[in-house]
Design a protein around this nucleic acid. Structure first.
Length: 206
DNA sequence: AAGTAGATGATCT
DNA sequence: GATCATCTACTTG
């Protein structure tokens, strides 16, 4: 890990995916640890990557806001029951959202990646998003998947090898927590402070 | 700058 | 047929 706040040099980029052990932590810890890490996606169009700056934890059986609440096991949620480090993608309206599966096998928990700070492949992101405004490129869960080229075809893959993986980035100066976004109909769970973000980062969603 | 409305489609009951 | 872990464009000020 780099010094606090320090970004990687932008020349001679080479990524080293994290190991399997990175994911074997309690879900809330993993949601924190993912902040500052790079999310990398390789496609035929090229490589695109960004620093993760906002996440949310979803904790299976306990959590009314989770797709897997009450151990609900369907074709969609199946991968959440697998081992930590797998890719859980699902569709929300017209958008694809991406999660990191966490927790023990059989415990359906995951961390939603809500925002990243663009790092490599910015031209590609602009092309995919059809927008020039930097701050609008990856500042939301549906936006970042489009910018990075993450699709439903990534469902079930692992986050520790190409074409989609997590790599070490920078150490955030300050991490803030608060209630999660967009889950008004989930009873008590809507107040849990399970959203994590890098304080002051302009790419955090609103 | 902030708030609202409408688009949009798979998944599940 | 209801339910969304969203986005964009359009309003208002």
């Amino acid at each position: 890990m780099r010094q606090t706040g320090e970004r990687l040099p932008n020349d001679s980029i080479s990524y080293k995916p994290v190991g399997e052990a990175f994911f074997k932590l309690p879900t809330l810890t993993l949601a924190r640890n993912l902040l500052g890490c790079l999310l990398v996606k390789e496609t035929e169009e090229g490589i695109a990557s960004g620093y993760i700056v906002e996440t949310e934890a979803y904790r299976g059986p306990l959590d009314q806001a989770a797709h897997s609440y009450n151990n609900r096991r369907t074709k969609r949620t199946e991968v959440m029951f697998a081992e930590a480090g797998r890719v859980y993608t699902y569709l929300m309206h017209t958008h694809c959202l991406v999660n990191v599966v966490s927790g023990e096998v059989g415990t359906p928990e995951a961390v939603l990646i809500r925002a990243v700070e663009p790092y490599e492949g910015i031209d590609l992101m602009i092309k995919r998003r059809g927008s020039m405004a930097m701050k609008n490129l990856t500042s939301g869960p549906g936006k970042l998947t489009k910018a990075l080229g993450i699709h439903m075809t990534d469902y079930g893959r692992r986050f520790d090898e190409p074409p989609i993986y997590i790599a070490p980035g920078f150490a955030p100066e300050k991490i803030v927590t608060g209630p999660r976004i967009g889950i008004p109909n989930s009873g008590e769970a809507k107040n849990y402070p399970w959203r994590f973000w890098v304080a002051g980062n302009p790419y955090v969603s609103k």
